[in-house]
Design a protein around this nucleic acid. Structure first.
Lengths: 157, 157
DNA sequence: GTTGACCTTCCCATGATGGGAAGGTGCACA
DNA sequence: TGTGCACCTTCCCATCATGGGAAGGTCAAC
């Protein structure tokens, strides 16, 4: 089948299929005389594997590892589990981080009347102005320990 | 003070400070005859604002909005709150998404003995092989509805 | 033959945070 | 005064995954 059909059948966009082929994640499929790519069932199977792994947030280089293990009949499930657990730790870390951010922000937003006046605990919080009136103590202390978005390591893009 | 000192005092790296200036997020500071940037207390105050906003995961274009509101003495706190709440909704969405991924992956990993043998429910789950023996039903159904990492919209990178 | 959907490759963009190269400046110390 | 090293400048590229779009070719229904 052509790339568009493969994309629809796998949930991986044509653009991404080409990209994955280009970076070596996927083998190049057969080509028709027209130059069009021709995907067979094994290709499709592989694409679906990639789709599912992406859906779980695995980065591409980990997916490459998983694909290798998938096709290795002598694989050790311990290797697979190690990859999965490392990624799981990542996911949990991100959840924690985002949760902390959300909590801080929620407290600031809750402290804001949103009545159209200039005074705003959110702004005060970002200002680092712990002497702001009203819910100043909560807002101030909340922004003193927010988590920090790190270097490119996010699961979602 | 020089950019290095400003970076240390604000927590925003020198690279990022230059970048933020380049993209117009921050005004260009004064320059010494050497060509070195010279940051004053207002600059530093602004950098700290940006640091805190970044720590809460606000994207730069939202931070630009917040900076504008911060310096507008006639701002409406409703505008600030709207930005905060939109971002909060984003954070909550991401948490939910990552949480679902983590749950699916945890179930798969828990189902794997990790004893070094080739059989692996994680691989089976990614394979979409719902007929895998053992914890096949749980693993299979789990991977049938995992969330999908989307287009670049992640808070963390 | 025509048309429109699909295909190809290529180049660029996103968002935030860098690394590193090449070359200049400042200052403490000998 | 000279030296050496930390710091500074600008510029270009990279990361990660997912695109958009341009230019040009192919296919199949009508």
């Amino acid at each position: 089948m052509n790339i568009g059909a493969a994309a629809r059948a796998s949930g991986v966009s044509a653009k991404m299929i080409r990209h994955y082929e280009q970076i070596g994640l996927l083998p190049a499929p057969a080509r028709r005389t027209s130059g069009y790519r021709d995907y067979d069932t094994a290709d499709l199977h592989r694409l679906r594997f990639v789709r599912r792994a992406r859906d779980l947030g695995f980065p591409l280089d980990r997916i490459a590892d998983l694909l290798r293990l998938w096709s290795d009949r002598d694989r050790s499930n311990a290797d697979v589990k190690a990859i999965a657990l490392a990624h799981l730790a990542d996911l949990d870390r991100q959840v924690r981080l985002l949760h902390e951010m959300a909590d801080v922000l929620r407290a600031l937003a809750d402290a804001c009347d949103g009545d159209g006046r200039p005074h705003c605990p959110i702004i005060a919080g970002l200002d680092g102005d712990v002497l702001a009136p009203g819910h100043c103590h909560e807002a101030g202390s909340a922004t003193s320990s927010p988590p920090r978005p790190g270097a490119p390591s996010g699961i979602l893009r």
